[in-house]
Design a protein around this nucleic acid. Sequence first.
DNA 1: TTTGACAGGTCAACAGCGTTTACATATACC
DNA 2: GGTATATGTAAACGCTGTTGACCTGTCAAA
Lengths: 206, 206
Amino acid sequence: MDHPEETGGDPGPTRGREATKARILASAKELFTNEGYGSVSSRMIASHAGVNVALINRYFGAKRGLLTELLRADGVFPGLIEGDPATLTRRLAEHAVSRLHGEGTALQRALDDSAGDPDLQKVYQGRITTAMIDPLTAYLGGDDARAHASLMSAVMLGLTRVRLVEGATALRALDRERLTDRLQALLDLCLDGFGEPEDDGEPGRG
Amino acid sequence: MDHPEETGGDPGPTRGREATKARILASAKELFTNEGYGSVSSRMIASHAGVNVALINRYFGAKRGLLTELLRADGVFPGLIEGDPATLTRRLAEHAVSRLHGEGTALQRALDDSAGDPDLQKVYQGRITTAMIDPLTAYLGGDDARAHASLMSAVMLGLTRVRLVEGATALRALDRERLTDRLQALLDLCLDGFGEPEDDGEPGRG
DNA sequence: TTTGACAGGTCAACAGCGTTTACATATACC
DNA sequence: GGTATATGTAAACGCTGTTGACCTGTCAAA
């Protein structure tokens, strides 16, 4: 607020619309990270940002808009889907295990814990489809691609869920490599074709 | 309200504490079923039951208490875990597909759609552990039992999640038998032992 | 019959939430 | 200077779940 800090090409005004928006966003991020989403009220954010409550709704539509804005930057699976198809399930498995162990950005962790809030649901609802299932579907290709993507997403989301409701201590206690292997196997199994009536076939990935 | 009607062995009073509680519960069930949990307020329930709002908190502690009470009767997996161990995963798979298609009681369906509400979360949070993971753990037995149970729960919960956020239309469009087979295979894979460093072993169920 | 205790029910309020409306103020342009 | 327009403010709205103080009818004891 008193360090105008012009770092060169990047315009970072300390007053005016953009500065206020940035200040609100920064406060929201900090508070959400430390307190979770549901526990932080609009008035708390405004107070922390030294700003009137009404501005949150003016600039972001609603409290939920803050969340959308904060999440717009990073994907649900940042950079995981793109890459070598042969190792996709491995990457996802590693990512899942990582999240299971509470790794990731502090904000991600906080929001994982706050999952369940209706606002968060609504925001994620769109993001899971557009940033996870849709890209996976496109990436996999083919007719049943969306079904495969949905199954994989189910496994990934289910793990988050178990961590949320139960802590997943038993899973976290497992050897990390073995758990990753198992998750990868589960994800691979999600990718098997649905065409053959044989329930117990060879791994027909792709 | 004016028919004290003692029907003999079964006490079903229309006045007094128990009758009022029953009336509130019935109204809550009906409204939750038709409108979802979050959309129904305490005052709506009270009004529908012809009762004062304060009685809800007097008799059930809070709105959440209504939910707990309504769910106390039926399990998360009613009667699925008990039974022939050899067909456990089959039963769970069939149950999952059934829920995916929106079958089950009307209340279950409504609450599935309302999942995400913090109150519902808190109630489910306990129930998923005590009515799903714990019994599964006990049922499976052994040292890694809880890890296996957690993995299975993840798959089951993930499916609910995908249905909630994306609709799971692609999965529901699949041949039901094939989807059930696939889910069963996934659940079976959850049960494989973690002990062997070999990632691709025989089905060491149990 | 009168008295008192008490369970059952009502009413109005509390504190909080997200959001909106009407208003004040500073900025920038003609 | 005058005026439009962006920016910020204060106060309220309507809603939520929840609570404490107050009636009221029933029943038992004196």
